[in-house]
């Protein structure tokens, strides 16, 4: 197990490093000179030069990259060129909001999707199964930004049940939960359908295994078989999907955060790309990559715990 974890950790590190280098290079190729975009039409050439120098844009790309990586190792993500605030402060203030949003969405999606899929599998080809199937496909088909706008219009503007913007009052947990429900649900919606479909297929596949037949023939009830035996194996594909899906979720969170005017990594990176504030874009993205890799690592490790066969491959 230790060897397995070490191997996975090394792979994760290499992934993060590779992604960081690639992202760094892609950002360099974005059209639009950041100094000009940030400063607007009033800037004189001298000011533009100064900002370029501050951002190290006047040096060759490989030098910028080495400096960037060196600073990251030292734990320094750089400084916002315009207001001198440390990028790490901006990123780490935003990060908890995004993590909470993503985790809540996954939780909502799993809490609804897994029972829904299991139920559909248990009652295969019945009317409830067909309704669940139709609902799942419909939910998958609705993109999270559309769900966000619709939820906002209906639950917030029309029914006035939920707040429309912000992340809630600082230090007021109730208010923060209250602000979380709509964005998290709109982000979770597609995933509910997705998880339900995978769960259904996975439970059905698992039920054809020999051990299920053995268990049933020993007189165990269907309920016991599902909860004690089938779920364990059937959850693996779902966890894999959630692990990979976390990346997609981060992508969806960008738009969701903008629609609901929530603080978060998505809003931060989006606005920074608009204004070509490179230090923030780079700092934000590297944290996003780290987060993504970490979740994938955890997902990988968790199969090992759930299904010992994975450990011994």
């Amino acid at each position: 197990m230790f060897k397995y974890i070490t191997r996975r950790l090394i792979v994760t590190l290499i992934t993060v490093l590779g992604a960081t280098i690639i992202l760094f290079i892609i950002i360099q190729f974005l059209p639009g000179d950041p100094a000009t975009v940030i400063l607007g039409p009033r800037a004189t050439p001298e000011i533009i030069e100064e900002v370029r120098a501050k951002m190290w844009l006047d040096r060759p790309v490989h030098i910028q990259l080495v400096r960037f990586l060196y600073n990251i190792v030292r734990g320094d993500l750089g400084t916002d060129v315009l207001n001198y605030m440390p990028v790490s402060t901006l990123v780490f203030n935003a990060l908890p909001y995004t993590i909470v949003l993503a985790i809540t969405s996954i939780l909502i999606a799993s809490l609804v999707g897994i029972p829904l899929g299991t139920y559909a599998a248990a009652y295969k080809n019945s009317l409830p199964d067909k309704i669940t199937g139709l609902l799942s496909i419909s939910m998958i088909a609705i993109p999270s930004f559309l769900a966000g706008v619709l939820f906002l219009l209906f639950f917030s503007v029309y029914l006035d049940w939920f707040p429309a913007m912000g992340g809630g009052k600082e230090g007021d947990i109730l208010s923060q939960i209250w602000h979380l429900i709509l964005p998290a649900s709109s982000l979770a919606l597609g995933w509910i359908g997705y998880i339900a479909r995978i769960m259904r297929a996975s439970v059905l596949e698992e039920m054809t295994e020999d051990y299920v037949r053995t268990a049933r023939s020993k007189g165990l009830t269907l309920r016991k078989v599902i909860f004690k035996h089938v779920l364990r194996g059937a959850l693996i594909p779902v966890i894999a999907v959630i692990g990979v899906g976390f990346g997609n979720l981060l992508g969806g969170a960008v738009i969701t955060e903008i629609i609901f005017h929530r603080p978060g990594l998505g809003t931060l990176i989006y606005n920074a790309i608009q204004s070509r504030n490179y230090p923030i874009v780079q700092g934000g993205l590297i944290i996003a990559v780290l987060l993504y890799s970490l979740v994938n690592l955890l997902a990988d490790l968790s199969y090992g715990f759930i299904d010992p066969r994975v450990r011994s491959d």
């Binding site: 503007v157 913007m165 005017h261």
Partner: peptide
């Protein structure tokens, strides 16, 4: 003061009274 990028979203927030 809220930096709301999209005017349509701002309108929704105004309609809601936020």
């Amino acid at each position: 003061l809220y930096p709301l990028v999209d005017k349509n979203i701002s309108e929704m927030n105004f309609d809601k009274g936020d």
